[in-house]
Design a protein around this nucleic acid. Structure first.
Lengths: 139, 139
DNA sequence: ATATAATAGTTACCTAAGATAACCATTACC
DNA sequence: GGTAATGGTTATCTTAGGTAACTATTATAT
């Protein structure tokens, strides 16, 4: 059996329980994975438009619209003037920064636990591979 | 920033487009990812009960019931006597083997493309890491 | 031997989160 | 100034997960 075959099966088998438990952790802060990803994005990369978020996450615009809406309602993000009157540029509010940083602590702890026994180098190596695979997907 | 933080973000960012394109490939054979995973399981590990599939995939029983039902309706799997009268043990039919093997060709091709530039050793290494992470998740 | 537990599966229902199609509003470009 | 393209939204659908509550069967403890 070719190694790719098992590779992708393992990826699927890993992702499911990972997402489940990530959501359990996030629930403590009233968040879901999709919201969390946007908060992460805005916190680390600064303000962004829906299109930018959509591209970054490989998720269609209407899906982003919905999740952004939830975050606005929760008061975690707010609109700022963009380059256009079309563009809806969003950034974290005070409350958004706070909830991110609080959840961050929980998630850090969770992530450290499940990465136990895997060296930093290995992690970085695997990250490079994931980026490479993602690039290949986009061609 | 800790490397785990980015690690899991990359995992999420990889999984989404991967699953999308996997489904595009599978659609050519009238399949979805969830069905495909069960066919894979039965093809490579032999007959299994719902509980076994559920454990293997870390997915709850009712979800498995539904997907198994779809595969039965399609004539790809069939019931065989289990150790119990409770147990619903399933195996691939002729048609199931055929559709798996046909789809397999498509998926092999897809997987080879997106693994371009990543050596077999690296792939095996990453697989080991994914298994390790999954173990850590189960504790 | 029988009452209670546990196990396997199902049904009914809910939710998250993705997708498409069709549509505005605004801006860019010819 | 009319047509493209871009950014965003609305409406609607689909996949695929989850929980709670149930039946049927089997295992176990009294």
């Amino acid at each position: 059996m070719k190694s790719e075959q098992q590779f992708f099966q393992e990826l699927i088998r890993l992702y499911r329980p990972f997402e489940n438990q990530l959501n359990v952790q996030l629930n403590e802060h009233g968040l879901h994975r999709a919201q969390w990803t946007i908060l992460y994005n805005l916190y680390h990369n600064g303000p962004a438009s829906n299109v930018e978020i959509s591209n970054y996450q490989s998720v269609e615009k209407p899906t982003i619209t919905r999740t952004v809406h939830q975050l606005e309602e929760a008061g975690y993000i707010e609109r700022i003037p963009g380059k256009d009157r079309r563009e809806k540029r969003m950034q974290l509010t005070e409350a958004g920064i706070e909830v991110y940083e609080n959840a961050r602590k929980t998630i850090d702890c969770f992530e450290q636990t499940i990465m136990e026994g895997i060296s930093e180098e290995k992690q970085l190596e695997m990250m490079e591979m994931m980026k490479k695979i993602k690039e290949n997907l986009n061609r």
